[in-house]
Nucleic acid binder design. Sequence first.
DNA 1: AGCCAGTCTCGGA
DNA 2: TCCGAGACTGGCT
Length: 165
Amino acid sequence: MNCSLPISTSEGRFVAHYSSQGLVQLDFPGDHRPAPARESNDEIPAQVRSWHDLTTTSLKTSLAGRPPKELPPLDLSAGTIFQRQVWHALLQIAAGKTRSYADIASRVGKPGAARAVGGACGANPIPVLVPCHRVLAANHRLGGFSGGLDWKRRLLALEGVELSG
DNA sequence: AGCCAGTCTCGGA
DNA sequence: TCCGAGACTGGCT
């Protein structure tokens, strides 16, 4: 089962993808990634619609710089064990706070694997809700961002994070 | 085997 | 104090 539904926000139109397990992927506006073939559009399962409500609310709340109160179930089964550990660790970062890649690495029990954490962040299918943008390099520099550094800056600004001091 | 969204160290402004 | 190059890192494809 595969459903893709749009979300219009102040930052543009995101696209959410769902499996039978929950939210699988969230696309940035302008990103036309390989959208999974969608089901017959006129028949969206009630469960997916309720998930989508949560996703929409969470996304808009996040974009307003506030912590979402309830996330939809996330289907992270596509990732490796390590990646899922990293993503879970990202979810623990409070809004408006930041961690370094090394912090996350030790949080998942692998200090020194900072570089691998970067890789896992890049593979994160659900940006914004899984706050990969809150991870900075050790010297509080920006580091990278697969969705574009511009997005990372903007997302951090929305949360009131000050960069490099 | 080769890629990185990192981090540390050291040398030169 | 502030970069830039180089060496080393760990997990992914």
